[in-house]
Design a protein around this nucleic acid. Structure first.
Lengths: 205, 205
DNA sequence: CCGAATATGAACTCATGGGTTCAACGTAAC
DNA sequence: GTTACGTTGAACCCATGAGTTCATATTCGG
């Protein structure tokens, strides 16, 4: 039934679709371009997806799942933090910053924001693979640190939320809404500043 | 030359344009609808603006200026903070949260993000009336507080950036990308949490 | 090698909407 | 009144692009 080729084409289409939607936005993207970008003919696109709208939603969905998985993987060092908690947090913060400044991540965020009113299904994607999931995963790690006496014990969810806020909040202005590419050195500085403030607010007194 | 009526029409057009763009997005909004929303005929729109693109940019520009002015005004209490610094910060934080959850503010942010790649002029708007301006105004207030010994003296710009981050970062997830309307009680809780963390990180030791 | 399923490209239909034209209509200035 | 200017609504032209059709080519299982 689903031959290998079919699955490959489907992946190629979803991938190419995200690329074009990311570059053009939903309305400005045309299916012809998506087909070209995917290395596929236009009728083939309609062979796999019923219309442009579902193509859009599906493309966003896989992009969101991929992004979430990468971000959660970046929390890994917190599972076995060394003696130097600050260094571990710096490392995780820097990795998260890199992932959040990636051009596909920025585009994903842009698309989710801009089309959320036209596509109710997008809300489901956000609940399924949005920042809440990442916050929860981070809260889990922080809770274990709190239990080990290395952080304040109060409300790991709030701690996670504020860690992410301190880290990502400054991003928007610094990157000029995703226009400017930030140097790695600048990312390290931002990560260090966020971790520093976070530890002042959340380290055990 | 410019009779009173002309200016009124121009304002009405810019206002109606923002309303429709906010509801539909740039590409999906049609000039006919904008004309209807503004209580004006379609050729009148083209009488004031050369084309849809400049109409869009101008509408965004006035919306951004308005939003910035409101936000800077909300910092006013910090000019003469009472004995209770926390209470003053709570008040300002709450006011800022209300302004940032306003539906027009959310729409403005959405539009800036989603069309920044198609309209280079938007970058100018962001630099002119974007978060940097608000950060600077806040940093000024915080610098005076630091000078008065009520906050750490180091880097008021960073302090302002982190205050805004702690305040607005949690907003995105909580409001489900601007979909959910937040109750005033929830805004107060969020403001208090942000101020609490900010003071732990930035109060004089 | 054959046959079924899928892919292809080109051409087609049709709806949408940006931008313009024009003749008729206020309306305010003098 | 008349002159000048802005507004109006309707009709119009034209480009774009979603979605389909079909005849042909390709590919893969058996």
């Amino acid at each position: 039934m689903t031959t290998g080729g079919r699955i490959d084409k489907r992946q190629a289409i979803l991938d190419g679709a995200f690329t074009v939607f990311a570059r053009e936005g939903y309305a400005q993207a045309c299916v012809q371009d998506i087909a070209r970008e995917s290395g596929v003919a236009k009728p083939t696109v309609y062979n796999h997806m019923t219309d442009k709208a579902t193509l859009f939603v599906n493309a966003l969905e896989v992009a969101a799942q991929t992004a979430l998985a990468e971000r959660i993987a970046a929390l890994e060092p917190l599972a076995a933090p060394g003696d130097d908690l600050r260094a571990t947090l710096d490392e995780v913060a820097h990795a998260l910053l890199r992932l959040h400044t990636d051009s596909r991540s920025c585009a994903l965020k842009r698309l989710l924001h801009s089309e959320i009113n036209h596509f109710p299904d997008i809300l489901e994607i956000v609940k399924e693979s949005g920042p809440d999931r990442l916050n929860n995963a981070l809260a889990d790690r922080l809770a274990r640190l709190a239990l080990a006496g290395r952080l304040r014990a109060a409300d790991p969810d709030l701690a996670a939320e504020q860690f992410m806020a301190l880290l990502l909040g400054p991003l928007e202005a610094r990157s000029r809404l995703g226009t400017r590419t930030l140097e790695d050195a600048e990312l390290r500085t931002m990560a260090a500043a966020a971790v520093d403030a976070f530890l002042r607010a959340w380290a055990t007194p």
